[in-house]
């Protein structure tokens, strides 16, 4: 890692911490102005992270210089990008209070990883692996977004059902907007994850042929994929909307995160690089 790259990463991390703090405080003191400022700070962090990744790409010679730091950074970058893109369309800045902590979490995890550590074992490096990883990450990032919108929907729903809209209710986006974001996240997250998994499967078929290792990550990812597929189906075909979708999206995300952490630290998996 070059020193410029390191400075850029540190600056991006700083911006994201600042933005996360700003969002959370804006939620506490109920002032939208602070969330607006935080959005700009997050946008700055997003640009810095993009530069950081660009620098890494320029100095990228082969897979051995591509560390898990970059990988987690891409994760954070994609989520931030989707969120900021959404900000251009809808004025739901408070969503940041739910998204920014995720971005920060990924960046902190990235900071903890040495970039010199080889991310993907050398025998598996290749174009198809990259495709598999990037698509899966983008898909999962969209699910995070859908679930964050779902969590906010539940809070707003609770306030409105109890006839206490109050200052917090005024601050949170409308139910309609939140449901739309949930819809958007599922609608685009699912095909991306699907393509990512197909990429992985095709690659695995090349490497291992017919008999794949019974990898817990593969099994569990498949379960998560089926669950989200089920949600999307219910949404599009049956017309599930609103609170039921919100509850299920949140449960889906919690299950996904727990499994990702559990598998990463407790079970043996071929995906143990991330």
């Amino acid at each position: 890692m070059t020193s410029v790259e390191g400075i850029l990463f540190a600056a991006a991390l700083f911006c994201c911490s600042l933005a996360t703090g700003g969002y959370l405080i804006s939620l506490l003191v109920r002032r939208v102005a602070l969330a607006k400022i935080s959005t700009w700070i997050l946008a700055a962090g997003f640009m810095l992270l993009a530069l950081n990744l660009l620098f890494a790409a320029v100095h990228w010679t082969d897979w051995s210089s591509f560390g898990s730091r970059h990988f987690l950074s891409i994760y954070a970058w994609v989520i931030a990008g989707i969120y900021l893109g959404l900000q251009l369309k809808t004025k739901t800045r408070l969503l940041g209070a739910f998204i920014a902590p995720f971005i920060l979490l990924f960046l902190i995890a990235a900071a903890g990883q040495g970039s010199d550590r080889n991310l993907v074992p050398s025998q598996w490096q290749g174009g198809l692996t990259t495709l598999h990883l990037v698509l899966a990450i983008a898909g999962e990032a969209l699910f995070v977004l859908a679930s964050a919108a779902g969590a906010m929907f539940l809070i707003q729903n609770n306030l409105l059902k109890n006839k206490k809209p109050g200052p917090l209710g005024r601050l949170l986006p409308s139910l309609g907007d939140l449901d739309q974001i949930n819809h958007f996240g599922l609608l685009w997250g699912f095909p991306l994850l699907t393509l990512g998994m197909i990429g992985g499967a095709v690659y695995a078929a090349f490497v291992w042929g017919g008999s794949w290792p019974a990898d817990p990550k593969v099994v569990w990812s498949f379960a998560v994929w089926v669950f989200y597929g089920f949600l999307l189906h219910q949404r599009l075909a049956i017309g599930w909307k609103g609170s039921r979708m919100a509850v299920l999206s949140c449960l889906g995300l919690i299950a996904f995160l727990l499994s990702a952490l559990g598998i990463r630290f407790c079970l043996a998996t071929v995906h143990n690089f991330i």
């Binding site: 409105l160 809209p165 409308s174 139910l175």
Partner: peptide, 10 residues
């Protein structure tokens, strides 16, 4: 009207 906006957005 305010409540309607909180529910539907626009």
């Amino acid at each position: 009207v305010e409540l309607a906006k909180k529910i539907f957005g626009t």
